[in-house]
């Protein structure tokens, strides 16, 4: 089974995003693998272990510095990685387009059996790239899955909907974006890290002439206007809420 996993890099969720003269100060921000992509990679590796002869290939649209992150992903069980190196930040559509072309180039026009992505990146949370990629590849897809059971000719998945869980049947080839809770990603071992050093990370020189669908016009620090009115007892609170029409 050929399995593609799309990875991206995000600022470490524990690092503080601060602004210097109106611009985000990235100098004190560590980049790491998007947490949702870890679940995507783990699921791919588990399937590789189950279906003999499977190969897990990693695709990443990022600056060249993403090599370090890809090294970690290889230690987690990826077989090889392709880095589509960009200096400018592509929008979700351009990212999906780059991934689509990289996938087509790598597999020589044949579609991989499965494609896994994180449900969204934690920095911008657009949740657009995975499903855009599925549309560009022309394959079936399900977003934000929490459970997956694969057999030789079909896949059963579950995803959370408002107030419940939806079960779906999907056929190969398919793309899944992955929600937290699908699995517990493994920790890398020293042995795996050593082996990962021997695996290849190829740079794929791809450029696109297509213009973005969406541009970011500004990013500003969030300034909250504090307006909290402290009240002493619940009785007063109930009166105020009834006054505002926020209750019943």
């Amino acid at each position: 089974m050929q399995i593609a996993v799309c990875l991206c890099q995000v600022p470490d969720t524990s690092s503080v995003i601060s602004f210097v003269e109106g611009v985000i100060d990235f100098s004190r921000v560590n980049e790491m693998m998007n947490p949702y992509d870890e679940y995507a990679l783990e699921e791919a590796v588990r399937l590789k272990e189950r279906f003999e002869g499977s190969v897990v290939t990693l695709f990443c649209v990022a600056p060249p510095s993403a090599r370090e992150m890809l090294r970690k992903a290889l230690a987690m069980g990826g077989d090889r990685a392709l880095l589509i190196s960009t200096t400018e930040r592509p929008d979700p559509f351009q990212t999906a387009l780059l991934l689509c072309r990289a996938v087509a180039a790598f597999y020589g026009g044949v579609l991989p059996d499965l494609v896994f992505c994180g449900k969204h990146s934690t920095d911008f949370q657009s949740a657009q790239v995975p499903l855009m990629l599925a549309e560009l590849l022309g394959i079936e897809s399900v977003s934000a899955i929490i459970k997956l059971e694969a057999s030789a000719d079909s896949i059963q998945v579950e995803r959370e909907i408002e107030g419940g869980i939806e079960s779906l049947e999907v056929h190969y080839p398919a793309l899944f974006s992955v929600e937290k809770g699908l699995n517990a990603p493994r920790k890398t071992t020293i042995k795996a890290v050593m082996e990962a050093r021997k695996k290849t990370i190829d740079l794929l020189p791809l450029t696109i002439s297509e213009s973005p669908y969406v541009t970011i016009t500004s990013i500003k620090p969030l300034v909250r206007e504090k307006k909290c009115r402290f009240v002493q007892d619940p009785k007063e609170l109930v009166r105020l809420l009834l006054n505002d029409g926020a209750l019943f």
Binding site: I24, Q125, L222
Partner: peptide, 10 residues
């Protein structure tokens, strides 16, 4: 965006 640290216009 960025875990609620910033607000972006698109």
């Amino acid at each position: 965006v960025y875990s609620g640290a910033a607000i972006a216009s698109f």
